[in-house]
């Protein structure tokens, strides 16, 4: 099997994640889709690392994970505070530039 297939899989997962971001209204699900996209990128990076025969790709994937963790913390905090003020987790409800 050609390792390029990992890249195709990553592309597929990324596209599914991106489409999910656009389709879903629930902020939590939207967030999950973003995580899916990040993971797809990580898969591609790991595959690249193997192709090139060095560990830089894995390093980048590692940093991506760290950043994703930070992002999740802040993002979920935002969702919680949004839910508190609006009693809804729908991103469409936040369509005005005021509460």
């Amino acid at each position: 099997m050609n390792p390029v297939n990992y890249l195709y899989l990553a592309a597929l997962l990324f596209t599914i994640g991106a489409t999910g971001v656009l389709i879903r209204r629930n902020a939590i699900v939207v967030f999950m889709c973003i995580e899916l996209m990040l993971n797809a990128c990580n898969l591609a990076l790991v595959a690249f690392s193997r192709m090139h025969g060095n560990l830089d790709g894995q390093i980048i994937a590692f940093f991506t994970m760290v950043v994703a963790a930070a992002e999740v913390v802040v993002g979920l905090a935002i969702i919680v505070s949004l839910f508190r003020s609006r009693h809804s987790a729908s991103v469409d409800d936040a369509s005005l530039m005021k509460l």
């Binding site: 990992y6 990580n42 790991v46 595959a47 690392s49 193997r50 894995q58 590692f62 963790a69």
Partner: peptide, 18 residues
């Protein structure tokens, strides 16, 4: 898949952290 690609550390981190 990470493990299969030789990224052993990342594979474990993926399971534990992610």
């Amino acid at each position: 898949f990470y493990l299969a690609n030789g990224a052993y550390f990342l594979g474990i981190v993926q399971i534990v952290v992610y």
